[in-house]
Design a protein around this nucleic acid. Structure first.
Length: 575
RNA sequence: GGCCCUAUAGUUCAAUGGAUAGAACGGAGGUUUCCUAAACCUUAAAUCCAGGUUCGAUUCCUGGUGGGGCUACCA
């Protein structure tokens, strides 16, 4: 039971004893006491005034008296303007910490028995990944980890948009402008080479708009299975996949299932027929099929073109059905930018109209765009922030900061490079994930991402410091012990933050917001750094106190690893 | 035009309807014979506007204003 819930249930008992009224513990408003007041948790008494028929102060005093009298865990109270601040005794916190220390998987919530699929990344194969994709990938990866920590079975998947007119554009430009260039012949990473073709195509089309028709012919040939077109398509996609794999690897991201649009784009047609049969869809005189959503406040939505071919929506209907059926899913989360809000609104409605009971188990994790100070990234203006460049730049930045300090001078070269990657990536991931997903965020390419303050490296550094102390303690033969001494007020604050972790995991998982975890990690690291600054650990003469402190440090380090792990960020033992 | 999202210090981000709106960067000033100064401490600085609901509103509602997005037989 969390401390908040414990207090809430006791408060509920107090209300019954004092005023004879039944209240649900969940209805009690309990919050962590603000720093400037004395106490651990605060009960807001305003909502109880209609029961007590007394002033806020009188109610708070009465409840406080009762709680101190009747709950041995509650040591004392004070009340300020309707806020009842309660202080839990040292024994309570010692036991609380023992519980945390004994829990090997602290923060891993019990199994829910649910299976959740998370689709993210879903790139087009005509361009390399950029900053926008990074936000998508990091969110999808982190949310997957969060849902797993919340006790769910999670299947990560991606849908590669590997066919369509955009791919043909790159193919056309390659045939006409690239003189047979390959990644091998040029040394250019495959996805970048294909991206260059795409840029070339834009120039071609500007000079001669008629190339557009040639590209369309190519698309038709692709659909007909023309061997030459298919061969080139396979070759160029192969280059891109190889390039993407490198980027995914650098980001530390992987998938359990990979879908390709060329396999799925025809799916869903049978569902359209089913909808026609049951009368929820209509066929226009020209043969196109529509779903009328005007009654739901939306428009008519096209599901099949007049020539009988399927559109994006048709495919998504089909893939959703297939995925739910094959994986026995309880829910499916799509990590897709907020420009597609309408699409997913329609998708859910259409699936509901088709009678699928799981239609409302589909969630669109809609995240905001990453913008530059000038606004959106525009490939035409060359302002697109390339994923590979950015990752490399972050590592370089980590290297230069580290070399300036000289702290890693005695670490072997290979490990050092590893640490630079870990730190650079930590800065990038934290920078992006600490922001509420649904909000548009800003990235300024002219200022490198910070390594000081509320950043990934700050938390990594905190962890490295703890590890350093624990290493020294171990060298000196000093053991850690999770009990045997009193906790001082700063230690109680630390334990209180630690104790809130499982609740935080639960909140973050249901809100699909890694930002909540990022903030929690920062709070813990910040609190620890203050503690570290004015508390002796290794030099503490009382061995019982010292052992307890070492145990607290050990658990803080573990909690930071766990929390940052949910963000996909590794923590170094040195830096 | 219609629909959706959004608005908080100079800047980037926080704040289940609760106390004096928190941080970080940047600004000003300070801390290293002491477990890693990527740290710590002090300081100045903000809720777009107008109403409403409430004991209490940054948060909920209405109306403005600014910013973004969607409104394709593209994906």
């Amino acid at each position: 039971m969390t401390a908040e819930l414990f207090i809430a249930s006791k408060a509920s008992e107090a209300v019954k004893a004092l005023y004879g009224a039944e209240t649900a513990p969940e209805s009690m408003q309990v919050q962590v006491t603000r720093k400037e007041f004395e106490g651990d948790y605060t009960l807001v008494v305003f909502p109880l005034l209609r029961i007590s028929h007394a002033s806020p102060d009188a109610t708070a005093e009465a409840l406080g008296e009762w709680l101190v009298q009747n709950c041995p865990e509650i040591e004392k109270f004070n009340s300020v303007k309707g806020f009842l601040n309660l202080t839990l005794g040292n024994i309570y916190w010692q036991e609380c910490f023992r519980g945390i220390a004994a829990d090997k998987d602290f923060g891993q919530l019990p199994p829910t028995g649910k299976t959740i699929m998370v689709e993210f990344s879903s790139p087009n194969t005509n361009k390399p990944l950029h900053l926008g994709h990074i936000r998508n990938n990091l969110l999808g990866d982190s949310v997957s980890r969060l849902l797993k920590a919340a006790g769910n079975k999670v299947i990560k998947c991606t849908l590669v948009n590997d066919r369509g007119v955009h791919i043909c554009k790159s193919m056309y430009a390659w045939q006409h402008c690239m003189n047979g260039a390959t990644p091998e012949s040029t040394g250019i990473k495959g996805d970048h080479l294909v991206g260059d073709c795409y840029v070339k195509y834009s120039q071609l089309e500007k000079a001669d708009p008629s190339v557009n028709e040639k590209v369309h012919e190519m698309l038709v040939k692709w659909e007909e299975g023309d061997p030459d077109v298919r061969k080139l398509w396979e070759t160029m996609n192969g280059w891109v996949f190889k390039g993407f794999d490198e980027t995914y690897k650098a980001l530390g991201i992987s998938f359990d299932q990979v879908y390709y649009e060329h396999d799925t784009y025809l799916l869903g047609k049978s569902l359209v027929q089913k909808g026609l049969d049951s009368g929820v869809f209509v066929k226009d005189p020209d043969g196109s099929v529509w779903c009328d959503l005007t009654a739901d406040g939306l428009d008519r939505k096209l599901l099949l073109r007049s020539d009988g071919t399927s559109v994006y929506m048709t495919q998504d209907l089909g893939t959703a059905e297939r995925r739910f059926a094959q994986n026995n899913l309880d829910s499916h989360i799509y990590v897709v930018g907020d420009e597609q809000n309408y699409h997913f609104q329609v998708l859910k409605l259409v699936l509901a109209k088709l009678g699928f009971p799981w239609a409302n188990q589909i969630f669109h994790l809609s995240y905001g765009m990453v913008e530059l100070p000038e606004g959106k990234m525009k490939s035409r203006e060359g302002t697109v922030v390339d994923a590979d460049d950015l990752i490399a730049q972050m590592k370089d930045e980590a290297r230069s900061v580290s070399e300036e300090s000289g702290k890693l001078a005695d670490v072997p070269e290979e490990q050092r490079e590893n640490l630079y990657s870990m730190i650079g990536l930590g800065a990038l991931k934290y920078f992006i994930l600490k922001v509420d997903p649904k909000k548009t965020m800003l990235f300024n390419p002219r200022e490198s991402i910070d390594f000081n303050g509320n950043t990934g490296p700050f938390i990594q550094y905190t962890h490295a410091r703890i590890c350093s102390i624990l290493r020294k303690a171990s060298e000196k033969g000093m053991a850690a012990a999770s009990s045997g001494a009193e906790l001082n007020p700063k230690e109680i604050r630390l334990v209180r933050i630690l104790a809130g972790y499982p609740q935080k995991v639960s909140e973050a998982a249901s809100a699909l917001s890694p930002a909540l975890i990022a903030n929690w990690c920062y709070d813990l690291a910040k609190e620890f750094n203050q503690y570290y600054h004015d508390t002796q650990i290794l030099r503490e003469p009382d061995s019982a106190v010292r052992s307890l402190r070492l145990a607290i440090l050990d658990r803080i380090a573990a909690a930071l690893r766990s929390g940052m792990g949910l963000l996909g960020i590794e923590l170094p033992e040195r830096m």
